[in-house]
Design a protein around this nucleic acid. Structure first.
Lengths: 246, 246
DNA sequence: AACATGATTTTGACTACCCAAAAACTCAGG
DNA sequence: CCTGAGTTTTTGGGTAGTCAAAATCATGTT
């Protein structure tokens, strides 16, 4: 055998928490691309090692070793050469980490007035250092918010997540009155650009025209501003249709 | 040689930060016991390895190895078989860690309404995870406080610390009108007990009697309450004499 | 069926810590 | 000046990660 270690019960390290979170997000992400139900080969949510290594930011061999340890601890199911999937226990832990991450982001933006483009890396470190007691205080202080500054749903303490999964801006027919609910890209540059255009969760927009030839989506904001997005960006902005009340 | 490693420039690990902080506190603590100026043997602030190992919570050999690494990085001066002392650079880092720790404690108590008896371990972890940007926001939010909930002075961003070092309750003559400024023990039980008696920073007290035979100090609070402390406890409560106004 | 390509796993080696216990040192008392 | 008690250092070994590069495996193409 080679590198083996036990994951000590009860207290996961920051590294373990991070792997679990990434696996969860990749699982959820691939389910979101709507090809899960389509291909019936039961590969639903299986995350490939290369993909995991990439998102965690380690060499492929490192990910393999870690995943084996996670499997030995009952946190994931691992099929060699195929991929990983979280067990129920692993998913519970992952959701707890995600809850911490998103509540922290919301707190930093709402209370400490940080910019939504800069809170992600901060939360990335704080999510592993915060106690349940403090998390509870933050949750109470914010009034039990449902979403973070990017519109991502905050899992409950019991481990439930809302699955709103609205349509992306690119899928919506022109003319509909829409509200931005979620922005799927955490990179500071993207977030700063969207904020400059007024495209934050809560913003009211209408698709003026989707020019498929040019690969652009033309928007009209409630502030009368016009904005043109490329298709890649339009795919990252999720919206819901608005009721007819103002 | 044996265990050697380089401390990567610029970014100290949580462990390194912790060693530096502990060395600082031991140095400062021994200076506070007023035997520094007394014995002129230039041992001012030299921290013994056993002492360091104890406060950091590691075996003596571990402390020796770490201190050598710190010395190689220019953060401490190390004299084998004698002890360690921070260099200017090491002290600057230590003060920065201490600043983070104390601002976090103040924030948790003031804003998130946590109890002063429970914030210490929380801050112990958060102090290594927080960015300078966030620290600045916290400092601004609190209105640049000078002390934390225990009355400990918060170092400035520039690395200056107020050195109030008032008298301890046990040293004060009976009858003087006093104000509690600082509580030197962070242990939850002690802090809870003191809070129950109303002995927090800002509390107004008078020493009614110091019974040296019994080893007790009898206090009168502004709330008319009477409290009796043992000498060990009375040594940990620092006070200043109050001006004659109200 | 044979192969090439790309993904995955294994190997071997490294860093940043940690401990227990043996060896070396210091220093006060006789 | 010698001894022994207490402290400090060294030795040897362990854990939780990490990487680079070699070996292996799965797959689509001829």
């Amino acid at each position: 055998m080679f590198w083996v270690y036990k994951i000590s019960q009860a207290m996961a390290t920051a590294t373990v928490e991070d792997y679990l979170k990434r696996i969860y997000l990749e699982q959820a992400g691939s389910a979101g691309t709507a090809n899960r139900a389509a291909d019936g080969d039961a590969a639903g949510g299986l995350v490939a090692m290369g993909q995991l290594a990439r998102v965690v930011g380690v060499a492929p061999g490192t990910a393999t070793a870690m995943v084996k340890a996670l499997a030995d601890s009952g946190l994931v199911n691992y099929e060699p050469y195929a991929g990983v999937r979280l067990t129920d226990h692993g998913e519970k832990l992952a959701l707890h980490v995600l809850r911490r991450h998103r509540l922290i982001e919301q707190f930093l933006v709402e209370v400490l007035d940080m910019d939504w483009s800069e809170v992600h890396p901060e939360a990335e470190r704080l999510e592993h250092a915060i106690s349940d007691r403090l998390l509870e205080r933050i949750d109470a202080y914010l009034g039990r918010p449902r979403t973070d500054p990017h519109g991502d749903p905050i899992p409950t303490a019991g481990g439930r997540v809302a699955r709103p999964e609205r349509a992306a801006l690119i899928d919506v027919r022109a003319g509909r009155r829409l509200e931005v609910t979620r922005v799927l890209d955490q990179s500071p540059d993207f977030l700063r650009a969207m904020a400059r255009h007024g495209l934050r969760p809560g913003a009211k927009v209408t698709v003026a025209r989707h020019d498929e030839a040019a690969g652009t989506v033309h928007l009209k904001l409630s502030s009368r501003r016009s904005v043109t997005l490329g298709e890649a960006a339009a795919r990252k902005i999720l919206v819901k249709t608005r009721r007819r009340s103002n």
